[in-house]
Amino acid sequence: MKLRIVFGFMALLIWICLAGASVADDGNMVSDFMCPCPDLCGKALEVCECSDAAIYIKEIADFQAGGLSRTQIREKFVEKYGPTVLASPPARGFGLLAYVLPPLAVLAGAAIVVALARGWRRSQIAEVARPKPLGADLKKAEEWLNKWNSSK
């Protein structure tokens, strides 16, 4: 039961945030792109201070003003500047691995921990369940001990 709560909680957290991020459309499209400047600065467009960055940002704003959707703008940019312009891997094919593997690794890690801990607990329970010495045995042992002590 407790195990299910832990897993349920973690899965819910991951789902909420991934789902939230994937549908987020706050109009800030700049964060979707890397700077495609000829210098290959390798920075995200929103953090880039190279002189060309303003031109690309304006291009996005013009597309938005022209009524293009987020997907259409992304497609236009990929067509013009290549796939490296996108700030996230494509969520399909091999690119999907980037999104799926980290949460899966965490869940697998949690599952391993829980399985190991359960195994430990089972062996502990088995140890506890071993027959305990009876009162008579203890009394006998105590008599032997007293006898041995007095013989010293």
């Binding site: 964060s31 891997p89 980037a98």
Partner: peptide, 11 residues
């Protein structure tokens, strides 16, 4: 391809 802040924030 590129992997920028958007991806890291999301994951």
């Amino acid at each position: 391809i590129s992997v920028g802040p958007q991806f890291f924030n999301q994951v």
